[in-house]
Simulated assay, not measured.
Amino acid sequence: MPGARYGMIGRRQYPGSRIRHPSGQPFAEGPGEGMGITLRDLAAACGVDISTVSRALRDDPRVKAATRERVRIEAERLGYHPNLAARSLAHGRTRTVWFILASLQSQREQEPAQHASLQLRARGYDLLVALYHGDPDAYRRTLRRLSQGVTDGAIVLPGPQDETAAFKPLVERNYPLIFVDRHVEGLPIPVVTSRNAEGARELLRRCLRRGARSSVVLFGAGNPVEESRRDAALAHARKRGLPFVHGQVSPDILARLPEPIAFLASAQYTVQQFLAQHAMALQGRRMCFGVFDEWRGEPYPGDAAFVCVQDFAQMARVAVDQLLATIDGRRKLRAQKTEIPPAEYRTILPRFR
């Protein structure tokens, strides 16, 4: 028609065009732009049917990846934000919080979720656990769904992947978020964690009191918790003039370490994996261990195992308090680290020698 201006229909788009409602009227612009856009409008703008748009926004694998991406881009351009909670709740609140984490296999994953659930239930909220099983695509998809109003806020135990970009749209909206245990650096999102450096130093001290004359530091890299523990243990070893090794270790170096040897790690399985890899070099050597959270069974083949037990109950309590303050509008997202002292230290000694 003469004088008519069309936007994106199907895959065609004309520079400078304005997207129009199927009725022929343009969508709202300026302040509040996009508030009147419906799922039907978005489907018309993309040139697909409503069910396809609905599935694409839910990242349904039945919709081609290219189509899902095209729908997401168009929805963002038009300012369309599906709010699932507002469709069913008059006040737009779900009274739910998501706990996003890779798995529930370890104590440091299970306990924060359990304690957070109890804290939230006492405040009239339900905690829903969202597992991404170490899959980066599932992780990003879960984070995108937060903006759809499916929950009021989220507690996140981030994985090793650097997913800064996935968090930025949520940060820009001041979406209620808090990290537990670990955090993603460079984001204005608060984190509640343990006094990791203090715990690592105390584990080494206890090994020294047990008679250790050298140490193998097995804390790794890749996340702030491991790096904090590693740096504190290495600094304390240097301060005490203690021989130590870290990183790649040859059998010759292990053989020259004076014994007893202190092995420090975040988890028991890390110690046992190292011992298995270097069984020949360590055969018959005296040793003791320092780990976080738990040691199951005998401290074999060591003389003792020392355990720094993190206070997950207090970590969850503080995280829930801070998250609900953001949900209620009493605070904005900002980078803030809250460090919780360990709950206790335990000593595991051999029982059958």
Rank of each mutant, 00 (worst) to 15 (best):
P82M: 01
F167W: 14
L282W: 08
L349C: 02
D135Y: 09
K64P: 03
E259L: 04
I189H: 06
A28S: 15
G153H: 14
D60E: 09
R286E: 13
L42A: 04
L324A: 07
E344T: 11
D293T: 07
A130R: 13
V180M: 12
T94H: 06
Q119Y: 08
L203C: 07
L324H: 06
R12C: 04
G32F: 07
Q148E: 08
V97A: 12
Q107I: 00
T193M: 09
A102F: 02
V217L: 11
Y14M: 06
R70V: 04
A343M: 01
Q114F: 10
P260Q: 12
P15M: 06
R12F: 02
P260H: 04
V192G: 08
G7D: 02
L157E: 12
T52N: 13
E294T: 05
L204N: 04
D49M: 00
A138K: 11
G3A: 13
R12L: 14
A28V: 05
A325V: 08
S88L: 14
A90E: 15
Q248S: 12
R55A: 03
G247S: 13
G34L: 06
T326E: 14
R201Q: 14
G32E: 13
H278F: 15
P136K: 05
R209F: 02
L234E: 03
F179M: 01
V225I: 04
L177R: 09
Q310I: 01
P31W: 13
L118A: 15
A138L: 14
V216Q: 02
L282K: 02
L89G: 02
Q161S: 12
V63W: 06
Y80D: 11
E74P: 01
G241A: 05
E298Y: 11
R72M: 01
N174P: 07
R141H: 09
Q105N: 14
R12A: 11
R346S: 05
V307L: 07
A102C: 09
G3R: 12
A44T: 10
D126L: 13
M280H: 15
H236W: 11
G329C: 07
P136C: 09
G153S: 11
Q314V: 02
P26L: 12
Q322C: 09
R195I: 00
R144F: 06
L78C: 03
L143R: 01
A212C: 14
G284C: 07
R238V: 08
A319Q: 08
Y14N: 03
V192A: 08
